[in-house]
Nucleic acid binder design. Structure first.
Lengths: 109, 109
DNA sequence: TGGCTATATAACCAACTAGATATCTGATTG
DNA sequence: CAATCAGATATCTAGTTGGTTATATAGCCA
C-alpha cells in the first residue's frame, strides 16, 4: 500500500467515533475485545469489525494470550497523519520552517 | 454540531486523496473551482461536491469575485484534528516512556 | 465429556459515497 | 441580443460502510 492510500485508510479509520473511543481507551493500555466492548451498545461482531479496520489502518496490533487476543496501540502510528496535517497548516500559515514546533505543540498539550 | 461529530466529519473529509490534494493546493493560496479542477481527471460536479464536503467540514471557505467563487483554507482548521491525534499519541508515548524508564531501571539495579 | 467464554466469520441490509451525465443560473463578452 | 464561461444542482448508479443475527472455532472448567 502506497503512502497516499495508507493515509486515506488511516484518516478513514479515524473518522468513526466508536473507533476513536477505542483508540483513546487503548492509549491507556492494552485491552481485550470484551473489555473494549463494554462502553458501547453495539454487538461483539461490530467491535471486531472496528478492530479489523483499525488494524488494517496500521493503528493497532493484536497479541495472543491463550484465550484472549489483547489489542494495543502501535507506537507512533498516528504521527504520519499528524505530520500531514502539520505540513498543510504550516504551509498555510507561512511557517514551513516551524513544522517541528507545530508537532511539538500537539504532543505537549 | 457537537465536537465529536465535527471531528468525525473532519477526519472523513481528510480520508479522500482528491480532497487532500485540494487542501494541499489551497495551502499555497486561494483558487477557483476551475483551477482546482485541472490536476484531476474527474468531472466539474465531482470537484464541486468535494468542495462542499470540505466546506461542511469547516476546512475551507468560499469567497465571491464577480464570476468566480474562490476557495481558501480556513485558518487553523486542521488544529483540532491534529490536537486529537497529539493527545492520543502523547498519552500512549507517555506510557511507553514510563515503560522504557521502568525497563532501564530494572536492568540498572 | 459437555458446557461456558472469547473471539472470528458469514450473510444480509440500509445508509452513505464518489463518480457520472444532464441541466440550470448568472456573469462576461462579441 | 446570443454565445460562452464559471459554477451549482438534480438524478442515477456501483461500491463501501456500520450495523445486525447466526454460526464457527478454540481454550477453559466441572
Amino acid at each position: 500500500m502506497d503512502m497516499e492510500s495508507a493515509l486515506s485508510t488511516r484518516f478513514a479509520a479515524l473518522a468513526d467515533p466508536t473507533r476513536r473511543a477505542i483508540l483513546a481507551r487503548l492509549a491507556e493500555g492494552e485491552a481485550t475485545v470484551s473489555e473494549l466492548r463494554k462502553p458501547f451498545p453495539i454487538s461483539q461482531p461490530a467491535i471486531s469489525k472496528h478492530l479489523r479496520v483499525l488494524e488494517q489502518a496500521g493503528l493497532i496490533e493484536t497479541g495472543q494470550d491463550r484465550q484472549t487476543r489483547p489489542r494495543r496501540l502501535k507506537a507512533g502510528a498516528l504521527r504520519d497523519a499528524a505530520a500531514w496535517l502539520g505540513r498543510i497548516d504550516a504551509l498555510w500559515s507561512g511557517r514551513l520552517d516551524r513544522l517541528d514546533e507545530f508537532l511539538t505543540r500537539q504532543t505537549e498539550e
